[in-house]
Amino acid sequence: MNPNVILTCAVTGAGDTPQRNSAVPVTPEQIARSAIEAAKAGASIAHIHVRDPDTGGVSHDSAHFREVVERVRAADTDIVLNLTAGGGGDLFPQLTGGELRAGPGSDLQTPAERHAPVGELLPEICTLDCGSLNFGDMVYLNSADWLREQAALVRDAGVKPELECFDTGHVRFARQLIEEGLIDDEPLFQLCLGIPWGAEADTQTMLTMRDRLPANAHWAAFGIGRMQMPMVAQAVLLGGHVRVGLEDNLYLSKGVKADNAGLVEKAAGIVEALGARVMTPAETRARLGLRTPGGKL
């Protein structure tokens, strides 16, 4: 069991969830406020996507990331910032008249474009998704060469990558990045469970992925939807850290819609009921060897 747990709150994500739960933050001000509320509820890390303030849809605009980061850093409540760098990989293949093309909803970026907000704002952590996936009806694209390029950009910026793994092959490729020297220091893994059609959100799958991590790895895991809280308990018991938040789950209990602070409070209660404790942001930085906010390592 892990007695000292890092608790991440994934604040908003990129799905069409604002239409299903009005607590999902959309504007930079709302996202920053929700991250601060999660910190006050006990979160160690805030995982940040941004949205188009007018439509609520996906955005990669560095200006929106900057506003969120500046608002959070200016607050009197500390939290580690983890910016997504995994956007711009969405492909909806469309075959029309025998011609294959990217269909409506596709959103593709180069590694440099994905990295731009990270390189500009220098968060303590950013995500690095470690492979492609049939993500529901969409294909999420991450070629090996593109991931190598992106990993080098993250390394050279001095930001710690969170290696997001949606299936066992992603863990294998992440180990390859480490062997090639593209990941510095002790690696940080996030095991992403329950997303169709990736790794399942169950004990055996989490254990299988955990057992394939490098010996010096830090790791966390999360489940989506109703499996969010069961995977919190399971990750702690298997020695890992945890993640909750409205990116992954919209409900506090059956039929009761959540907000981020409520999900953090519930997860912290599970951690404490198991005899563990949630680490502070300062303790998290020390444990993971993170830079100071906005600065160098």
Rank of each mutant, 00 (worst) to 15 (best):
G131R: 08
T27N: 00
V242L: 08
G255Y: 03
V5F: 04
D90K: 13
S22W: 09
A220R: 13
R73G: 06
A267C: 14
G269K: 11
N134D: 14
G262T: 04
I224N: 03
L141N: 09
A10R: 06
A157G: 05
P281F: 08
G245Q: 15
E180R: 04
S62V: 10
V236C: 05
G119Q: 04
G42M: 06
D16W: 05
V242T: 12
N142Q: 11
V69H: 03
W146A: 14
G97V: 05
A10V: 14
L191A: 07
A151I: 02
R101T: 15
G239N: 05
A151S: 10
D248H: 15
A235W: 08
S44I: 07
D248S: 15
Y251W: 13
K266I: 12
G119Y: 07
L297Y: 10
M209F: 01
A174N: 06
R148S: 05
E162L: 15
K160N: 06
L83P: 05
D52V: 02
D129N: 09
G295S: 09
P281K: 01
I45D: 08
L250V: 11
R212I: 01
D185V: 06
P111I: 00
T127E: 13
L153K: 08
L263Q: 10
E265F: 08
I36P: 00
A220W: 01
K40T: 03
A152T: 06
G262F: 03
L246G: 05
P53Q: 01
E247W: 15
H170V: 02
P104W: 05
D259F: 03
N21V: 15
S62F: 04
P111Y: 04
N134H: 08
L147Y: 04
R243I: 12
W219V: 05
P161S: 07
D90C: 12
L121F: 08
L128G: 06
G240S: 07
E164I: 08
L133F: 10
A201D: 02
H241F: 11
R285H: 10
V11N: 12
G158K: 00
T55S: 12
